[in-house]
Design a protein around this nucleic acid. Structure first.
Length: 963
RNA sequence: GCCGAAGUGGCGGAAUUGGCAGACGCGCUGGAUUCAAAAUCCAGUUCCCGCAAGGGAGUGAGGGUUCGAGUCCCUCCUUCGGUACCA
């Protein structure tokens, strides 16, 4: 058979690469780099090995990186291009609960399937470096890094993490004894324990991840989810807020992703202000004390909430300039001072309100109807600048976890406060005068409309007439001097809740001391490093035990209890979240088998940072932020050499299903009968406003074809009817029936076609719909490439008789070198779609040639090889080469071959193209103008008119402006 | 609501960044080859008027800058993605 047959050649080359270890990573040391070697670490976001196998979205990014990796190798650059699996996670555990099969078994099966599919696509990974986050050899080091976090405190002065034993202990604490010292240390560690709310689902008897809770009910069975406080491990990512923000500046990342991270970190500047809430009679005394002693530091409790002096209520505001307009205050329902503030008369109402709020999830509180609720505490605070008493309310529009959990409300200049004030009829005092031309100025000054922008101060005593910025500064200074306020910085970023009450995750390497009666003493210690990893216990079954403790608590005492240095300990039973393993996997690829270090420092220095990181935008914030955080801690502690892990980041766009014909549910029910008569049925998808019905053939649920739709006046209708439909491409999903399986594509068209098609669809970053005809299109191209070399009519696979050892003619040479140039530039710029288009043009040109010089074809095959490696290898071999094409050096283009003896230049008259002239490419400006004016058609058109202006751009165009 | 990305033929998309709009592919039309088909090859294919030569319009809408705008500026519309009271 002489036909192009990918199902025969692809597996053959895949096993060739595997046997010859063609893509084993080159050795690389820092001295190689000093001697001029170039390196490139090309990384894919590793997949979660789901039971569904690979979908077509995976190969998109993987093909892109594979092309770059193969291209750079061909350019002589040392390449590290690994793959692995992010294999901890819920689905395997759910599967285990259902079937009793250990998650490890299911996970290994899934990984094996992923590996099969990845190999089937011919990616040039170094398979010797595969890691899985679930391997004990791997998570040993995840636990090790956790212990680094546990052993680190953040020195705000040096702005870096330091070993905990370098933390100086205040004398007052040292005086209280060892336990106090240890508690003090614990309160500063980057990994610390605190009480936080978990989603407990009594119906399922299990704790749920946030993703599993929707609208306050369990996503799986619809049971309501309760929020329970549980002891949790937290990571102090907030300490690195500034560093994470500043680090973004030097990264070659999409600006959109940087912005998302900036917004997520959410740094704001403003002031903290204390409002006196004590007995009015003592206000003067309090002020006097403050003026003398100054503004006390905000002290944090072990769980991160602010400690108060009980006499004052501390707020955070970004608009200290509006302090004169603060007409009431609000504290969050969880605020520690609520009980103190609530008067006896109000206590029933307040308690009830807090109770209701405690059942609401964060989502419930913030989602849905924006109607604000709240209760008056009965107390008043004193506005420090006006000296007037203002009421203090409890309301859940103030979040406990941000700022101080309390606000001064300035309804005239804050939308939320304004809304609340209108609802509860509270005072609105404008203190910022909008610009005179503001359309609502009168209403704003009358307190009828809220104004949040900047202006000039009014109703603000000595500050009247100053600008917002001036007042901000002046008020903050004034408060500072009186010891009742201070400038402050806040982050939206919260500390990272790091523990999960699940089985299938990394166990924490932490031991809690127990006394002789088995009671916790409150003391804990790290598992000694040489005892890592802490492996998961063998459990009989994985069913939830009905209590909100982690499943590991069900383990045998053998696992659970540890004797160490004469003391008895119980193991930590929480497990780490799925993010943990993915925070550092790129380091392990560099040295995957090292059992002494997480990564050999010399190798780490040679390969880091990652030069190209490709993955979906869904990880824009969390994964990338968490990774950067861990990396900075490892950097501070000297374990890695770069402050940032990922130099360049590219987000691949989503691949949508093929367009389908939709109509609204109402339209569908109206037309149901007539559609059924035509053999059509509807598949309802989406919910609420997004609900719609997809039209399909009733007999096999297949989508309608284009010829079953007709277009009239720009609208689409079911052919022969007035039933209007809308063509729309959606995310692939089982319910829509638009999922494309890579196995099917490889079987029908071949892996090279799949790779090529996904790259040809459009720009890598764009969202684009799948079209099966497009796969046929690139397959056509590969067939043509095949016939460039092989005589497809011969049974023995003889080479095409057009092949010759002659040199290229001038035009062939130009086409070849233009192709080399364009493919090189586009591959470097990751514009794969246009590189492929250029290769198609090459193929079209040489297909037509009677004579096809072998040298040109070979050069072309090298250009093609990163894109369609199997066919390139096969034809390379057929042309007599004996080594793999992967070892062929990337061709260079010859600038001289690109120039044409004559080029066509358009001549415009008043901006419209009227003629074209053929000139030499080197023609000067004046000559070009002369040729243009000498052209017959141009002469004719400007005859009798005056040339007002002539624009001559050599090599591009001539434009004559005539009157 | 806010933030981000994007709107170009029947479809996916090109366009050296202000210089020939529609590269390349799909689809479609016609032709060659064939007993016939598949496959292949050749030609055509933005729309409108015209037999043609040619003319006119045209990159979501409207305005502007410019000799010249898909590209820059202003206003608006639509779609997709993200986000959700962060004081």
């Amino acid at each position: 058979m002489a036909r192009y047959n990918p199902s025969e050649i692809e597996p053959r080359w895949q096993s060739y690469w595997e046997q010859h270890r063609t893509f084993a990573t080159d050795d690389l040391t820092t001295s190689d780099l000093k001697n001029g070697a170039q390196k490139s670490y090309i990384l894919d976001m590793f997949p979660y090995p789901s039971g569904d196998g690979l979908h077509v979205g995976h190969p998109e990014g993987y093909t892109a990186t594979d092309i770059v990796a193969r291209y750079r190798r061909a350019c002589g650059i040392k390449v590290l291009h690994p793959m692995g699996f992010d294999a901890f996670g819920l689905p395997a555990e759910e599967h285990a609960i259902k079937t009793g099969v250990h998650p490890r078994i299911k996970t290994e099966q899934n990984i094996a399937e992923f590996v099969r599919q990845l190999k089937m696509l011919g990616f040039s990974y170094d398979w010797d470096r595969v890691v899985s986050t679930t391997d004990e050899d791997y998570f040993r080091w995840t636990q090790w890094i956790f212990l680094v976090l546990y052993d680190t405190w953040f020195d705000a002065e040096q702005n870096k993490g330091r070993p905990i034993d370098e933390l100086s202990i205040p004398a007052s604490i040292a005086a209280k004894g060892d336990d106090a010292v240890e508690q003090y240390r614990d309160s500063k560690r980057l990994a610390f324990e605190a009480h936080a709310l978990v989603n407990w689902c009594p119906g399922l008897g299990t704790v749920l991840a946030n993703e599993e809770v929707q609208n306050g009910v369990s996503e799986r069975d619809g049971h309501p989810v309760k929020r329970l406080p549980l002891r949790q491990w937290m990571l102090r990512i907030t300490a690195y807020g500034d560093r994470l923000l500043e680090g973004l500046d030097d990264l070659d990342w999409p600006t959109g992703i940087k912005k998302l991270q900036q917004d997520w970190i959410g740094r704001s500047t403003g002031a903290e202000v204390d409002f006196y809430v004590g007995d009015e009679a003592n206000y003067a005394d309090w002020k006097a004390v403050r003026a003398k002693a100054g503004f006390p530091e905000t002290e944090m409790d072990a769980d991160g909430s602010a400690v108060s002096d009980q006499q004052s209520l501390r707020v955070y505001t970004t608009r200290p300039d509006t302090l004169f307009g603060a007409t009431y205050m609000v504290v969050s329902p969880e605020h520690p001072l609520v009980d103190v503030l609530t008067t006896a008369a109000q206590s029933e109402q307040v308690n009830q309100y807090r109770e209701t709020a405690s059942f609401k999830s964060d989502r419930d509180r913030t989602d849905g109807g924006k109607v604000k609720t709240g209760v008056f505490t009965g107390s008043h605070a004193i506005n420090p600048v006006t000296g007037k008493p203002i009421p203090v309310w409890v309301a859940d529009y103030v979040l406990a976890g941000y700022g101080t959990g309390a606000i001064m409300a300035v309804p005239a200049h804050d939308e939320r406060d304004f809304e609340f004030a209108k609802q509860f009829d509270l005072d609105v005092i404008p203190v910022v005068d909008p610009p005179a031309d503001h359309e609502d100025r009168d209403a704003i000054l009358d307190g009828q409309v809220c104004f949040v922008a900047q202006g000039l101060a009014i109703n603000s005593g000595q500050f009247d007439g100053k600008t917002t910025d001036e007042v901000k500064e002046a008020v903050t200074l004034w408060l500072d001097k009186d010891g009742i306020g201070k400038s402050a910085v806040n982050f939206k970023l919260r500390d990272w809740l790091f523990s999960r009450q699940r089985f299938w995750g990394e166990p924490f390497p932490i031991l809690h001391e127990v006394d002789a009666d088995g009671k916790l003493t409150g003391r804990k210690r790290a598992v000694p490093l040489e005892q890592l990893p802490v492996t998961l216990p063998d459990l009989e079954d994985f069913k939830p035990h009905g209590r909100p403790e982690p499943p590991l608590a069900k383990a045998d005492d053998d696992w659970l209890y540890v004797q160490l240095d004469g003391k008895r300990y119980i193991r930590e039973t929480n497990t780490m979240p799925q993010w943990a393993g993915s925070c550092w996997y790129f380091l392990r690829y560099i040295d995957p088998k090292n059992d002494q270090h997480l990564v050999d420092p010399e190798k780490e220095k040679a390969w880091m940072p990652v030069d190209l990181y490709v993955g979906g935008a869904e990880h824009a914030v969390l994964h990338l932020l968490y990774s950067r955080f861990w990396h900075k801690v490892l950097y501070d502690r000297g374990h890695v050499s770069t402050p940032e892990p990922f130099g360049r980041l590219v987000n691949q766009g989503m691949i949508l299903g093929a367009p389908q014909y939709h109509l609204s549910p109402a339209a569908f029910s109206g037309a149901k009968a007539s559609l059924a008569a035509m053999g059509y049925a509807g598949v309802p998808v989406g919910e609420d406003e997004k609900a719609s019905v997809i039209l399909v053939h009733a007999k096999d649920n297949s989508d309608l074809r284009d010829d079953q739709i007709e277009k009239r006046k720009g609208k689409s209708f079911v052919a022969g009817t007035d039933i209007e439909v809308l063509a729309k491409a959606d995310k692939m999903s089982k319910s829509r029936g638009n999922v494309v399986n890579p196995d099917d594509i490889v079987r029908e068209y071949g892996a090279d076609s799949l790779r090529l098609y996904e790259m040809f669809m459009g720009p890598l970053e764009a969202t684009k719909p799948w079209a099966m005809e497009g796969v046929g299109g690139v397959r056509n191209f590969l067939d043509r490439v095949w016939r460039l070399v092989v005589d497809h009519r011969s049974d023995e696979g003889a080479l095409s008789s057009a092949l010759t050892d002659d040199d290229c003619d001038e035009e062939q040479n130009r086409v070849l070198h233009q192709t080399i140039k364009k493919v090189t530039e586009d591959t470097e710029g990751m514009s794969f779609n246009t590189a492929i288009a250029r290769m198609m043009e090459f193929t079209n040109h040489f297909s037509k040639s009677e004579k096809r010089p072998r040298s040109a074809i070979k050069n072309f095959l090298i250009l093609l090889s990163p894109y369609a490696p199997h066919i390139a290898e096969e034809l390379w071999r057929k042309l007599g080469e004996t080594d793999t094409i992967a070892h062929a050096p990337w061709p260079k283009f010859d600038e001289a071959a690109l120039v044409q003896s004559s080029i066509e230049v358009p001549v415009q008259i008043n901006g419209k193209i009227k003629a074209k002239i053929n000139v030499s490419p080197e023609i000067s400006k004046d000559e070009l103008a002369a040729v243009a004016l000498g052209d017959d058609r141009v002469k004719q058109l400007i005859d009798g008119k005056t040339i007002v202006k002539q624009i001559v751009v050599p090599g591009r165009l001539v434009n004559l402006v005539v009157k």
